[in-house]
Amino acid sequence: MIKKRLVLKFSPQVVNRPIISALSRKCDISFNILQATITQNKVGRMILEMEGSKKNIDAACAFFKKSGVSFQRLGEDIKMDEKKCVSCGVCIGYCPTGAFSFDAEKKVVFDPKKCIACEFCVTHCPYNAMTLKY
Protein backbone atom coordinates (compact mmCIF):
# COMPACT_ATOMS: atom_id res chain seq x y z
CA MET A 1 0.00 0.00 0.00
CA ILE A 2 1.24 3.45 -0.86
CA LYS A 3 -0.08 6.97 -0.39
CA LYS A 4 0.18 9.68 -3.00
CA ARG A 5 -1.02 13.28 -2.97
CA LEU A 6 -1.53 14.94 -6.31
CA VAL A 7 -2.53 18.35 -7.58
CA LEU A 8 -4.78 17.79 -10.59
CA LYS A 9 -5.43 20.41 -13.23
CA PHE A 10 -8.62 20.16 -15.30
CA SER A 11 -8.51 22.23 -18.49
CA PRO A 12 -11.74 24.01 -19.59
CA GLN A 13 -12.22 21.18 -22.13
CA VAL A 14 -12.51 18.48 -19.45
CA VAL A 15 -13.67 20.43 -16.41
CA ASN A 16 -17.33 19.43 -16.96
CA ARG A 17 -16.68 15.68 -17.23
CA PRO A 18 -17.34 13.32 -14.27
CA ILE A 19 -13.73 12.16 -14.16
CA ILE A 20 -13.49 11.51 -10.42
CA SER A 21 -16.66 9.44 -10.54
CA ALA A 22 -15.12 7.34 -13.33
CA LEU A 23 -11.92 7.02 -11.27
CA SER A 24 -13.86 5.53 -8.38
CA ARG A 25 -15.42 2.91 -10.64
CA LYS A 26 -12.35 2.02 -12.69
CA CYS A 27 -9.52 1.99 -10.17
CA ASP A 28 -9.53 0.09 -6.91
CA ILE A 29 -8.09 2.83 -4.68
CA SER A 30 -9.42 4.88 -1.81
CA PHE A 31 -9.13 8.60 -2.17
CA ASN A 32 -9.84 11.78 -0.33
CA ILE A 33 -10.53 15.14 -2.00
CA LEU A 34 -8.60 17.68 0.09
CA GLN A 35 -9.48 20.69 -2.00
CA ALA A 36 -11.37 21.45 -5.23
CA THR A 37 -11.84 24.78 -6.98
CA ILE A 38 -12.84 26.04 -10.41
CA THR A 39 -11.43 29.39 -11.41
CA GLN A 40 -13.24 32.12 -13.34
CA ASN A 41 -11.60 30.97 -16.56
CA LYS A 42 -12.99 27.47 -16.02
CA VAL A 43 -9.80 25.73 -14.95
CA GLY A 44 -10.33 23.12 -12.26
CA ARG A 45 -7.76 22.49 -9.56
CA MET A 46 -8.07 19.55 -7.19
CA ILE A 47 -5.91 18.13 -4.47
CA LEU A 48 -6.39 14.41 -4.20
CA GLU A 49 -4.95 11.99 -1.70
CA MET A 50 -4.89 8.41 -2.95
CA GLU A 51 -4.14 5.19 -1.12
CA GLY A 52 -3.79 1.76 -2.64
CA SER A 53 -1.37 -0.69 -4.25
CA LYS A 54 1.35 0.80 -6.42
CA LYS A 55 -0.15 -0.93 -9.43
CA ASN A 56 -3.59 0.60 -8.88
CA ILE A 57 -2.19 4.07 -8.18
CA ASP A 58 -0.13 3.91 -11.36
CA ALA A 59 -3.32 2.90 -13.17
CA ALA A 60 -5.12 5.91 -11.68
CA CYS A 61 -2.34 8.20 -12.91
CA ALA A 62 -2.54 6.63 -16.36
CA PHE A 63 -6.28 7.18 -16.29
CA PHE A 64 -5.79 10.91 -15.54
CA LYS A 65 -3.36 11.20 -18.42
CA LYS A 66 -5.78 9.48 -20.78
CA SER A 67 -8.63 11.74 -19.61
CA GLY A 68 -6.68 14.92 -20.30
CA VAL A 69 -6.07 15.82 -16.65
CA SER A 70 -2.55 17.01 -15.92
CA PHE A 71 -1.06 16.43 -12.49
CA GLN A 72 1.98 16.81 -10.30
CA ARG A 73 2.93 15.74 -6.83
CA LEU A 74 1.55 17.91 -4.06
CA GLY A 75 4.06 20.28 -2.52
CA GLU A 76 5.94 20.72 -5.75
CA ASP A 77 3.78 23.68 -6.62
CA ILE A 78 4.25 25.66 -3.38
CA LYS A 79 7.69 27.21 -3.23
CA MET A 80 9.55 29.22 -0.64
CA ASP A 81 11.73 32.09 -1.82
CA GLU A 82 14.68 31.90 0.57
CA LYS A 83 15.71 35.47 -0.28
CA LYS A 84 12.34 36.87 0.75
CA CYS A 85 11.85 34.74 3.87
CA VAL A 86 13.00 36.51 7.06
CA SER A 87 12.35 33.46 9.30
CA CYS A 88 9.87 35.25 11.55
CA GLY A 89 7.76 32.11 11.86
CA VAL A 90 4.32 33.62 11.25
CA CYS A 91 3.69 30.75 8.80
CA ILE A 92 4.29 28.26 11.60
CA GLY A 93 1.29 29.77 13.36
CA TYR A 94 -0.84 29.83 10.21
CA CYS A 95 -0.15 26.51 8.47
CA PRO A 96 -2.92 24.00 9.28
CA THR A 97 -0.75 20.93 8.65
CA GLY A 98 2.50 21.94 10.33
CA ALA A 99 4.50 22.11 7.10
CA PHE A 100 6.73 24.87 8.52
CA SER A 101 9.16 24.60 11.41
CA PHE A 102 12.30 26.16 12.84
CA ASP A 103 15.59 24.37 12.35
CA ALA A 104 18.37 24.49 14.94
CA GLU A 105 19.52 27.92 13.68
CA LYS A 106 15.95 29.26 13.98
CA LYS A 107 15.63 29.38 10.22
CA VAL A 108 12.14 28.58 8.95
CA VAL A 109 12.08 25.42 6.83
CA PHE A 110 9.25 24.20 4.62
CA ASP A 111 8.39 20.52 4.32
CA PRO A 112 6.51 19.99 1.02
CA LYS A 113 5.54 16.48 2.13
CA LYS A 114 3.22 17.90 4.79
CA CYS A 115 1.80 20.59 2.51
CA ILE A 116 -1.80 20.27 1.34
CA ALA A 117 -1.53 23.35 -0.91
CA CYS A 118 -4.27 25.29 0.88
CA GLU A 119 -2.30 28.40 -0.10
CA PHE A 120 -2.87 30.10 3.25
CA CYS A 121 0.86 30.87 3.46
CA VAL A 122 0.88 32.15 -0.13
CA THR A 123 -1.84 34.66 0.70
CA HIS A 124 -0.74 35.66 4.17
CA CYS A 125 3.07 35.56 4.39
CA PRO A 126 3.89 39.18 5.33
CA TYR A 127 6.99 39.15 3.13
CA ASN A 128 5.41 37.37 0.14
CA ALA A 129 7.98 34.60 0.41
CA MET A 130 5.59 31.80 -0.62
CA THR A 131 4.40 31.37 -4.18
CA LEU A 132 2.18 28.98 -6.06
CA LYS A 133 3.55 27.63 -9.30
CA TYR A 134 1.73 25.22 -11.50
Binding site: S87, C88, G89, V90, I92, G93, Y94, E105, V108
Partner: peptide
Protein backbone atom coordinates in the same frame (compact mmCIF):
# COMPACT_ATOMS: atom_id res chain seq x y z
CA UNK B 1 -2.50 27.33 22.43
CA UNK B 2 -0.10 27.31 19.46
CA UNK B 3 2.09 30.42 19.48
CA UNK B 4 3.83 32.29 16.67
CA UNK B 5 6.20 35.21 16.45
CA UNK B 6 6.40 38.37 14.35
CA UNK B 7 9.95 39.02 15.45
CA UNK B 8 12.62 36.99 13.64
CA UNK B 9 15.05 35.41 16.09
CA UNK B 10 17.31 34.42 13.20
CA UNK B 11 17.62 38.04 12.04
CA UNK B 12 18.01 39.27 15.64
CA UNK B 13 20.94 36.87 16.05
Amino acid sequence: IPSFSWSSLKKAR
